[in-house]
Design a protein around this nucleic acid. Structure first.
Lengths: 169, 169
DNA sequence: CAATAAGTTCATTATGTAATGAACTTTATG
DNA sequence: CATAAAGTTCATTACATAATGAACTTATTG
């Protein structure tokens, strides 16, 4: 993208659908706790039409510093949201979104359920009066989280079975 | 809490279990997107042994400014996480955690599922080659979100039935 | 082995969000 | 109706987190 285009596009406030998409993915992931740049990287990788996306590609497309790209790539690698692959005879690193870990989504949910469940369990030990509003409140919420904790593995299994059916019809 | 206690407790790094609890609830909610102060208010309200908690109680317990308490109370009210109640002959406002909206938890989840689903739907329109890694990736994730979107209402119903049984045994 | 490419590290700067506190509005009371 | 209590608003300050960019490491190639 050259300077002329850049000036025009920002003046007229136009973006290609792809550029818009990248920014929106960035914002969505930011909303759910990742750095915006990490989200933008995911947006670029997800909407990429070329097979191989390098560090350099990302830097140019997202117009960000090496440091930021490097840091956020490694964050995404640690969270298994992307993976690195190499091409023989080429010293660059290439990245793509991870295909396998769909259950990551549910697993993250299960984790957060466990965290809240613990907080409610602790809370209940601090409320002395068993007839109080709070005691009843905390007990019920706790029940709900226990329910969710039981149900999540069932949901996971249900998904796995559905996949199996589709693969061997 | 007097100054002497404050100096001691911070110097020795001791906190009552309740104080520790309030801070931990604050951190947990901060992690999931609420301002820390809003989380601390929830922590205080949840672990309160007294029936009525006023604005003033909160301000004293959390050692925060009126402005911060006010802003965060109203945030929590808007999100239906707490509710206000009045006492006749008393011009103060009192607050408590909301008992009813357990399904808020699931509903928030359903909303976030819808947001991600939309992002994947948009992404798929940007990837031209139907045999590419990304096309397959986005299609599968999209399937998964559709599955979750279908399952959530079922889960909700299951919970409601479980509650009904417990109420009329 | 010098030169360069690829990526990392980290001190500095920038940005966004939250808390503060003083001034203000609203409501009640003697 | 003056006074005070209860809470809100908002400009300012503080804080936490992210991005930058230059110096650095590591690997590669002519």
């Amino acid at each position: 993208m050259n300077l002329l285009y850049f000036c025009f596009s920002s003046y007229l406030n136009t973006m290609t659908p792809k550029e818009k998409y990248i920014e929106d993915v960035g914002l969505l992931y930011e909303k759910y706790g990742l750095p915006k740049m990490a989200g933008r990287i995911l947006g670029y990788l997800m909407s990429a039409s070329t097979k191989n996306t390098s560090f350099e590609n990302l830097q140019e497309a997202l117009k960000a510093s090496k440091g930021s790209i490097s840091g956020n790539i490694n964050l995404l690698l640690r969270q298994s949201l992307i993976e690195k692959h190499m091409i023989s005879g080429d010293r660059k690193s290439y990245y793509k979104v991870v295909f396998t870990s769909l259950n990551n989504i549910l697993e993250a949910k299960v984790k957060s359920i466990a965290e809240f469940k613990q907080i409610y369990e602790r809370g209940i030990t601090l409320v002395v009066d068993e007839h109080s509003h709070n005691y009843k409140y905390l007990s019920e919420v706790l029940e709900y989280y226990k329910f969710l904790e039981e149900e999540m593995p069932l949901l996971k299994r249900k998904w796995e079975e559905k996949i199996k059916k589709n693969e061997t019809p």
